[in-house]
Amino acid sequence: MKKRILRIIILLLLVGAVFYFNGGFEKLLKSPTVQAFGDLIVDFHTVGPIFNLTNMKPGDSETKPIDVTNNGSVSRIIAARGTRTGGIGLDPKIETVLNVTIKDGSTALYGPKSMTDFFSDSLSQDGILLNTINAGDHKTYNFLVEFPTSANNLYQAKSVTADLSFGTITGNNVVFNEVYYIDTKKKTRFKYQWIELYNPTRQDIRLKNWTITDNSRTTVIRSDKKIKAGGFALLSDDGTVWKLWNEPKNSLKIKVVKKFGNGLDVDGDHVVLKNSSGIEVDRMSWGNDISGFTPPAVNPKAALGHSTERQTPGFDTDAASDWVDRNPPTPGN
């Protein structure tokens, strides 16, 4: 009996392996309504133009739910773009009177604004900012188009078609992502301080001769190591600190020659990151030091044993609101 069960299991494994290596799962999961935009998996629930608006009457509306999944390993700021792909009718075109609203649940993220403005706003560098989706999570965005009841007969027999695309907003250089400066061990608190950098770009970046400056002095990164695209680097002046944390095993760890400044000031300090050419690429601060943001603002002092962390890796508006108190700290994530 056991041998028979074993044969059946082996047979199933073999069949499964053949199915897998012939692209079975990929074909099974593939849908004509689903598209990938980098780490994002987007289900439009329709094939062809997302909106094909014709013969609309005053008071009519149409809603399209779009499911977006963050298939990456870090949180992402989501952005959308709308593109006019066709339509019928002379000026004034129907999109000048149609209103567009984008919602996440009951929360309006955009609009109501005219569809003409929607197309125009989509042309900006980052498209239309929606909100954040954490790694592995998904959200349903509802795109609502309304024909106002106040519209007149100028728009009869006119139409417009439109498509949507999605992407993520990232920075263009390495940034500070998390700072741990207030350890529970007061006597040796400088020893256990660490800084996490994040590379939101699409290329690996060499960190040799980059510098970190606080309110007292400058620390130089002497190690000739690269931070990978979409990766993290953990910096400390004592390698034993990582025995206290559960960071990913493959994390890039860089030991700096001296502690940051004269030790990061718990009550208030700032850090400035410069590349090997001496060009400033990022800065931030906390506590009673407000110099790390534009305009100057307070990033509250972290609680004992907590860190201060960027809300979304790589998303930098130079504002204190980019940062949160993180408990527990998450080095390398």
Rank of each mutant, 00 (worst) to 15 (best):
residue 128 I to R: 10
residue 316 D to T: 07
residue 153 N to W: 09
residue 38 G to W: 14
residue 141 Y to V: 05
residue 291 S to D: 11
residue 197 L to K: 00
residue 186 K to R: 15
residue 27 K to G: 10
residue 24 G to S: 10
residue 67 D to K: 10
residue 39 D to F: 09
residue 53 L to H: 03
residue 310 R to N: 10
residue 1 M to P: 02
residue 164 L to M: 05
residue 281 V to F: 02
residue 193 Q to G: 11
residue 282 D to A: 10
residue 80 A to Y: 11
residue 125 Q to C: 02
residue 218 T to M: 02
residue 178 E to P: 07
residue 327 N to L: 13
residue 118 F to Y: 15
residue 9 I to M: 06
residue 30 K to F: 12
residue 112 P to M: 06
residue 207 L to C: 02
residue 226 K to W: 04
residue 114 S to H: 03
residue 26 E to L: 09
residue 158 K to V: 01
residue 98 L to Y: 08
residue 9 I to V: 14
residue 236 S to Q: 06
residue 263 G to K: 05
residue 102 I to W: 08
residue 226 K to Y: 05
residue 59 G to F: 05
residue 139 K to A: 11
residue 194 W to N: 00
residue 239 G to C: 00
residue 18 V to I: 14
residue 93 K to F: 13
residue 28 L to Y: 15
residue 261 G to I: 03
residue 60 D to R: 03
residue 105 G to D: 12
residue 171 G to K: 02
residue 291 S to G: 12
residue 312 T to H: 13
residue 218 T to L: 03
residue 172 N to G: 08
residue 286 W to L: 08
residue 39 D to W: 05
residue 209 N to R: 03
residue 177 N to I: 02
residue 276 S to F: 01
residue 6 L to C: 12
residue 97 V to F: 03
residue 56 M to N: 05
residue 242 W to A: 04
residue 161 T to E: 11
residue 113 K to C: 04
residue 259 K to M: 14
residue 7 R to H: 01
residue 205 I to C: 03
residue 314 G to E: 04
residue 114 S to K: 05
residue 14 L to H: 12
residue 213 T to M: 08
residue 35 Q to I: 11
residue 223 S to H: 02
residue 220 V to C: 06
residue 331 P to F: 04
residue 49 P to K: 02
residue 180 Y to G: 13
residue 51 F to Q: 10
residue 308 T to N: 09
residue 325 D to K: 11
residue 227 I to A: 00
residue 316 D to G: 03
residue 287 G to I: 15
residue 83 T to H: 10
residue 306 H to K: 04
residue 150 S to I: 11
residue 43 D to H: 10
residue 74 V to Q: 14
residue 283 R to K: 15
residue 56 M to Q: 07
residue 130 L to A: 06
residue 1 M to F: 06
residue 311 Q to R: 14
residue 40 L to V: 09
residue 205 I to R: 01
residue 28 L to R: 08
residue 188 T to C: 07
residue 160 V to P: 05
residue 147 F to M: 15
residue 265 D to Q: 12
residue 266 V to G: 05
residue 70 N to V: 01
residue 191 K to W: 07
residue 320 A to D: 04
residue 105 G to C: 13
residue 22 N to H: 09
residue 165 S to Y: 11
residue 179 V to C: 12
residue 112 P to R: 05
residue 178 E to R: 07
residue 324 V to H: 07
